[in-house]
Amino acid sequence: MGVQYLSDLQPLSSSSGTDTGSAEVNGRNYARSTSLRVDKSYIPENDAEYNLGRDWRTFKATIGLRDDAPTGCRLKFEAFADGKLINDATLPLGETRDLKLDISHVLRLKIQVTYVSSTDISNYCYGAWGDARLET
């Protein structure tokens, strides 16, 4: 069974960059994560797009806000397969969701995080795709 972590791949494009490596989400550490930074004023949305070459069957990740996010922060997590929305979830700080998405025959995978709200508008938030990986 083949596995490829997004944190080990260079995205084809990213609107405001990615942060890869360890991420603490809801009290749990995800060692091979891809995080996207967003904020209310300058980066309300951030994404990263990857070339899959139609080689993978499943995309798995645990999504949520990194534990260093300000209180009250909420982010929207979306995933697109060849431009088609395959995941849409809005999560507050302290909640996670496990994803297992079918990406059979997909050429491009785009992950996106959008700022929704927080109690402190001057701080930024990171939306983490914990241990995000492609599987055959």
Score class of each variant (00 low, 15 high):
V3M: 07
D8C: 01
D8Y: 05
L9E: 06
Q10V: 13
P11H: 01
S14V: 00
S15R: 09
S16T: 05
S16A: 14
T18N: 01
D19F: 11
T20N: 13
N26Q: 08
G27M: 02
G27A: 02
Y30H: 12
Y30M: 04
T34P: 08
L36K: 10
R37S: 13
I43V: 15
P44L: 01
P44E: 06
E45K: 14
E45N: 12
E45H: 10
E45L: 10
N46K: 07
D47K: 11
N51S: 15
G53Q: 06
D55A: 15
R57P: 05
F59T: 06
T62G: 09
R66K: 13
D67M: 05
D67G: 00
A69H: 00
G72L: 04
G72P: 03
F77G: 02
F77I: 00
A79R: 08
A81R: 04
A81L: 02
D82Y: 04
D82H: 02
G83W: 00
G83D: 00
K84C: 03
K84D: 10
K84F: 07
L85V: 06
N87W: 10
L93S: 07
G94R: 07
T96Q: 09
D98L: 08
K100S: 15
L101W: 04
D102S: 12
D102Q: 08
I103D: 07
I103N: 08
S104V: 09
S104Q: 13
L107Y: 14
R108A: 12
L109V: 05
V113L: 01
V113A: 10
V116H: 00
S117F: 06
S118D: 13
T119I: 09
D120V: 07
S122E: 12
N123D: 15
Y124Q: 10
Y124S: 15
C125E: 10
C125D: 07
Y126A: 08
G127E: 04
G130Y: 04
A132C: 03
R133D: 05
L134F: 09
